[in-house]
Design a protein around this nucleic acid. Structure first.
Lengths: 113, 113
DNA sequence: GCATAATGCCTAGCGCTGCAAGGTATGGCA
DNA sequence: TGCCATACCTTGCAGCGCTAGGCATTATGC
């Protein structure tokens, strides 16, 4: 039930969101732009990606939300929970191991041990 | 038609295969084990991933195949074509840019420019 | 001599993820 | 009065990776 059997390359949007929210609470629209800007346009995740992930993370208890009105604008701010911090650590570790593995193949080519 | 609009995280199996075959021609079963061993078990792509990708790459002219019999075993060896080399460069470049972008978000957190 | 594993190839079909494309509502601006 | 930006949301699909099979041959173990 709670097990997550996704494919080996997935979960990056989730990772990015958790990492950004770790520093300060953010809202969906803000995350969309933050990811685009801070990746220098290399990654452009739309709202159709971000919002569903935010909802799933909140449902799993990794994020908590609070509705706030700023400048007459209603926003849903998301903050990292303790469970979310743990999940972030796990995802970041997996990502690191994965990219290291890929890099080791890319740089060394095919000369076997 | 020829355009490839896949999602931003896909194409890694393809990249790994092209990179390995660049050094020496290899066959499917060999690639499955090579990826597993050279990634120290971090990546374990099954034959159900490798073979379809090999067929697609050959269909696209990125790989050429030749049937050979070694030790009474029939094997299909794949070699990189010029088009395949170009495709490899493209994929490697994209992967590099992508991981750099992700890394820049992961390490610096949320302090904006 | 017989079964089991390892080698080597292949495919059908499913689950999931990222994504495009829509919809709603408010505020600022010309 | 319209238009763009802000801010939220969902439906539905495409494509990828993967599971789970199947087939044939050669080594290995008993």
């Amino acid at each position: 039930m709670a097990e997550n059997n996704s494919n080996f390359m997935s979960g990056v949007p989730e990772l990015l969101i958790l990492r950004l929210v770790r520093e300060k609470e953010m809202y969906g629209y803000e995350l969309v732009q933050a990811i685009r800007e801070r990746s220098k346009e290399a990654i452009a995740l739309g709202e159709g990606v971000i919002y569903p992930v935010l909802h799933a993370l909140e449902r799993d208890g990794a994020l908590s939300s609070s509705r706030k009105t700023v400048n007459g604008r209603s926003r849903v701010y998301y903050a990292l929970t303790a469970a979310g911090a743990k999940r972030l650590d796990d995802l970041a570790g997996n990502w690191s191991r994965l990219t290291d593995a890929i890099q080791s193949i890319l740089v060394s080519g095919a000369q076997h041990a």
